[in-house]
């Protein structure tokens, strides 16, 4: 049962303020997003409409602690169909960003962040790779791009790693 005593009336307004979250309040619950969603097609535990609904109801803890929030593949099938013009994938992403900010960041993303901090790219470029590229006549690439670390420090996102 939904207990609205747990509802945080500010939650939806905080999402609206975030990049991509601006369309949240337009939702009238037609469920076209859920019917379009390829992830939902194969895993009924994930439902974008339900995430949006719980967010509108202010059920912050339920939304942020749900493992299914992270199932969105960001494929934009929903964005194309939403009759209210909500950028649904961006909206779900805004909720993910909010969750990270509140300390709910999946380990996988932390690992990726760590890699970007160290190298500026997701895959380590080993000598073996460079030799292989040379053999194929492909140009050499940088092993690390330190500028990325500068950006990570600037936006303050590294705090995620400390939590």
């Amino acid at each position: 049962m939904i207990d609205l005593k747990e509802s945080d009336p500010q939650f939806k307004w905080e999402i609206v303020k975030k990049e991509g979250g601006e369309g949240l309040l337009k939702c009238f619950g037609c469920s076209d997003c859920a019917a379009s969603c390829p992830v939902r097609y194969f895993n009924e535990n994930y439902n974008p409409r339900k995430i949006i609904r719980l967010t509108l109801l202010g059920l912050k803890d339920r939304v942020l602690t749900s493992p299914f929030l992270w199932f969105c593949a960001h494929c934009h099938a929903c964005t194309e169909r939403c009759p209210q013009g909500i950028r649904v994938a961006e909206l779900i992403n805004a909720i993910k960003n909010y969750a990270v900010d509140q300390g709910y960041c999946p380990e996988g993303y932390k690992m990726q962040l760590d890699l970007l901090l160290k190298m500026g790219r997701l895959y380590e470029v080993e000598d073996f790779d460079l030799k292989k590229r040379q053999r194929l006549g492909l140009p050499a690439i940088d092993k690390t791009i330190p500028d990325v670390a500068r950006i990570l420090e600037y936006t303050g996102i590294l705090k995620v790693l400390q939590k």
């Binding site: 619950g29 037609c30 469920s31 076209d32 859920a34 019917a35 379009s36 939902r40 097609y41 009924e44 439902n47 409409r49 099938a77 169909r81 009759p83």
Partner: peptide, 27 residues
């Protein structure tokens, strides 16, 4: 059925409508 269908398509020659049914919460 309560819900806005996402698409109409042909599958193995048959016409079909894909939608979520909000009464049961199922595709």
């Amino acid at each position: 059925i309560k819900g806005k269908p996402s698409e109409v398509f042909r599958w193995n020659g048959k016409l079909a409508v894909r939608t979520e049914d909000l009464f049961t919460n199922e595709l």
